[in-house]
Design a protein around this nucleic acid. Structure first.
Lengths: 196, 196
DNA sequence: CGATTCTTTGAAAACAGTCAATCTGTGTGG
DNA sequence: CCACACAGATTGACTGTTTTCAAAGAATCG
């Protein structure tokens, strides 16, 4: 099995931002490929996080584990998504989150210092990344909205509508966790909704 | 009453980012001061939003009104905070949120086009603003965490710890809305917590 | 097939929401 | 200065939803 998945990233960039071959080479030069098999960690709480990370293949989850052992899912990421922990990256502090693989995955890791430098050196790339970040922010605010205003059933309907790509790749119990309810509740809600 | 509160913004910038007098003048040149009295709107759902906005005085709330008339508070902002609707700003679409004043307030409005240009023209300012945005993102993720993992009582304790500056300026019923509970529930929680 | 993991179901308990009434503090007008 | 109105906060009784705990059913994988 060949394992150079940088081309996935190249394809992703196409149509999103116009870069020269040299510029892409500069990105390639700093990319490190990392395989994370199912149930393995990409990041564990307590560790530091100093990279920008792109999922080239597979799927992962980011989650918080509380003192009493409960896991709360912050988010999912599959191929062509960015993943990581902005808080730990900006603060330099140990991560409070965990990231592990739901499927065998391949991640491209870009050391943050160098990545940031490339954002400055290649303005179109920099503003592209900035847009990605701002969209993440908007998404996270949308999630807060839904959390505040929607019933459990509406939350699930909203998730199905906005994230159909996860439905068949993520266990239902993890979706429940992401939505802030127990697996039992989600199961019952689905039964209710199916009746219509 | 003199009404030039740009100096509040200047004071805010000091120590955060080193700008020359000319650079500050360029910011001043595009700033428009707007008074928003208590209960008046800075932004109404359906309107477009094309500015970056800095609160020079007073306090405001951002909230979502659902079909059945319920209000859900997205956030608060007081002097020295930025306020606005990034989703509407980025998309150009009509706002789904409302922003109104909790106290008589004065806002500095920077037309987004020109503001963005200044971020490019004055790199230290640009990266300062970028940092602000990233911190907002991190904050919003923190809020999601708390929503998912904390009990009602923990949510309130967390709010008190992180946002003491709002406690004596925002009605308790609005804090309840922000935390995703009814005013009655918050009242009961406070009584419980006081017993210890 | 057997083991493991995930989902579903049921019954009881805990929790938060609703509705309605009362209480408290603030500010206004007579 | 007092009386009143108003907004916000509290309290109680009740209802509805979600969680918890336990067990049984699917589905998946080696």
């Amino acid at each position: 099995m060949p394992s150079d998945l940088f081309h996935v990233f190249e394809t992703y960039l196409q149509g999103k931002v116009a870069l020269t071959a040299e510029e892409i080479d500069r990105l390639r030069a700093i990319a490190v490929e990392k395989k994370v098999y199912r149930k393995q960690y990409l990041l564990q709480e307590g560790d530091t996080w100093k990279t920008d990370a792109f999922v080239a293949r597979g799927g992962l989850r980011t989650y918080l584990r509380t003192e009493n052992g409960q896991e709360h899912i912050i988010g999912f990421a599959i191929e062509n998504w960015w993943i990581g922990n902005r808080e730990a990256l900006l603060s330099g502090q140990p991560s409070r989150w965990n990231i592990d693989a739901i499927e065998d995955s391949v991640i491209l890791l870009f050391p943050h210092d160098r990545f940031d430098q490339l954002c400055l050196d290649i303005p179109p790339f920099g503003s592209f990344i900035q847009t990605i970040l701002q969209r993440s922010f908007v998404k996270s605010q949308r999630r807060i909205e839904t959390t505040l205003s929607a019933t459990a059933e509406q939350k699930y309907a909203d998730f199905v509508e906005r994230n159909p790509q996860f439905l068949d790749r993520v266990p239902q119990s993890m979706i429940a966790s992401y939505l802030g309810m127990t697996p039992e509740t989600l199961s019952r809600i689905r039964r209710q909704a199916a009746k219509r």
